[in-house]
Nucleic acid binder design. Structure first.
Length: 463
RNA sequence: UCCCGGGUAGCUCAGUCGGUAGAGCGAGUGGCUGUUAACCACCAGGUCGCAGGUUCGAGUCCUGCCCCGGGAGCCA
């Protein structure tokens, strides 16, 4: 007999009577006298396929090797299930065991585990319900990002991962070098002599593709990057990784208003996409991880974002009838407690705060007429905080040079960035979205280490 | 990096006043004609994070270190 090879996802919608072969990893096994139930999952869907093996259907030694965690192929007939829990199941005629798993040592049990424990077995945790759902959503979200920009004629560009320029003078960077630690060449003054290194100057892993994206936006008008970025900060929080993915659109001829509109459209689009394509996984998150996930996502998709300036935000915070750990004061950056108050308590929806004081923002943000504030925007969302940071960029050569000097950055290192203002400069804007932050927002997962397959954090890069 | 909390069986945890190490789940064995985190019975399983110290005696008290979690800072 011919058996059609199908995924578990396909198997669950096959007509009764189909002869199929399904492959997957056994999640659970229940034995009764004369009948065995095995649930397999191949990652194609949250729900698994129930295999029903009647006594004598397959050799005893084969059935014995089908343990929790083993990988098998099963052939048989799709049948209507007489019991609750699944509409169809597979009445098994043959089983092939690709690889058994010793139940005494297989670490994933049928019962729930803590996220901390699963993190220690990151090579196996994708086989659990939670992480299966997380990484399917991650895939859908990445696809939604590309689709959004391609529908709007953006060019997907690849900015370098190894860089010799420090994007904003902010954030510690990882050195990239081929020099041997023991025989590190030194200059006459005893400093490391990077001119003898591979790139003949100090090189790092990128902290942002923005500066290069600006160069490309001033040729292709609308571009976006989507790639890994690296921060060597020693920050130990549930919201930081040393290696994370960032999406950075950059648009010529966009002012801050256009930029804000794009950010709002973008967030709504990717949320709607994931809600449409990951219904089963999101339902799981809503039930087991964070009971407000669906409600919040629907709310964001259907409400317009609040817009306030930094100065207005500080006034609102000062007027708020509550005590702060850090007193809100013009000129100081908004603290986590302030951001949470604005998005979670006062407006109860995403808030875009604009026009921050120039002293707390990067040199490349466009200076306002008041000479005190810059055209920056931060999108704050409930539960996660700052999810997007962006700005209209300074396109005026003289102003940009003055800002470089003001912030103490070496002008010569930014020669090519300044060239962009010398030759055919144009107003332009862009923003950055932390992909894993967005994942936390969509799934309700509490720790950023649990929305990326193999997280890198200080002291931790095992897998 | 700073401030809190934690580390005891494969997992999740309890352990009183300093006096011979406990439970549930999981694994194993047996039972049960259809289970859904199956159920019932039995059973094995321990370098109490590591290193010192106090004590007749330390899982318990003290010191240092390591790791994990929460909060903060920095940020995406």
């Amino acid at each position: 007999m011919d058996y059609q090879v199908v995924s578990v996802k396909q198997a669950l919608s096959m007509p009764v009577g189909s002869a199929i072969e399904a492959r997957g990893w056994a999640r659970s096994r229940r034995d009764s006298k004369g009948i065995t139930f095995i649930e397999i999952n191949d990652g194609s869907r949250f729900k698994g396929l129930q295999l029903v093996v009647e006594a004598g259907a397959v050799p005893a030694e084969t059935l014995e090797a089908v343990t929790t965690g083993s990988c098998i192929a099963a052939r048989g007939q799709v049948t209507e299930s007489p019991a609750a829990g699944q509409p169809v199941e597979l009445k098994v005629e043959q089983i092939h065991v690709y690889g058994s798993a010793d139940p005494a040592h297989y670490p994933l049990q049928k019962k729930g585990h803590t996220m901390e424990f699963l993190r220690e077995i990151a090579h196996l945790r994708a086989r659990s319900n939670t992480f299966g759902a997380v990484f399917r959503v991650r895939n859908a979200l990445a696809f939604a990002v590309h689709q959004f920009f391609h529908e709007r004629d953006f060019l997907y560009v690849h900015t370098p991962i190894i860089t010799t320029s420090d994007a904003e003078g902010a954030g510690a960077m990882f050195h990239v070098s081929t020099l041997e630690p023991g025989q590190f060449p030194k200059t006459e003054t005893g400093e490391p002599d990077w001119s003898q290194d591979f790139f003949e100057k100090a090189a790092y892993l990128t902290v942002s593709g923005q500066l290069e994206a600006e160069a490309l936006a001033l040729a292709f008008s609308k571009v976006y990057t989507f790639g890994p970025t690296f921060r060597a900060e020693n920050s130990n929080t549930p919201r930081h990784l040393a290696e994370f993915w960032m999406i950075e659109p950059e648009m010529a001829f966009y002012d801050l208003k256009d930029n804000m509109q794009l950010a709002e459209d973008f967030l709504k689009y990717i949320i709607a996409y994931v809600m449409e394509h990951c219904e089963e996984d999101l339902a799981f998150f809503n039930q087991r991880i964070e009971p407000t996930v669906l409600q919040t996502l629907e709310h964001v998709a259907n409400s317009s974002f609040e817009h306030i300036t930094y100065t207005e935000a500080v006034n609102l915070l000062q007027k708020a009838n509550r005590t702060w750990e850090f007193t809100p004061e013009w000129g100081c950056d908004l603290q986590t407690e302030h951001e949470r108050y604005l998005s979670e308590e006062l407006f109860k929806k995403p808030v875009i705060v604009t026009d921050y004081p120039k002293i707390i923002k990067a040199f490349y943000m466009r200076l306002n007429e008041d000479d005190r504030t810059v055209r920056a925007m931060d999108v704050l969302v409930p539960r996660v905080g700052e999810i997007i940071g962006g700005s209209q960029r300074e396109e005026r050569l003289d102003v940009l040079r003055a800002r470089l000097v003001e912030t103490g950055l070496p002008e010569e290192a930014y020669w090519w960035y300044l060239d962009l203002r010398r030759f055919g400069s144009a107003p332009h804007s862009g923003f950055g979205l932390g992909f894993e932050r967005m994942m936390m927002y969509l799934t309700g997962m509490k720790n950023i280490r649990d929305v990326i397959p193999f997280p890198r954090t200080p002291g931790s890069a095992e897998f």
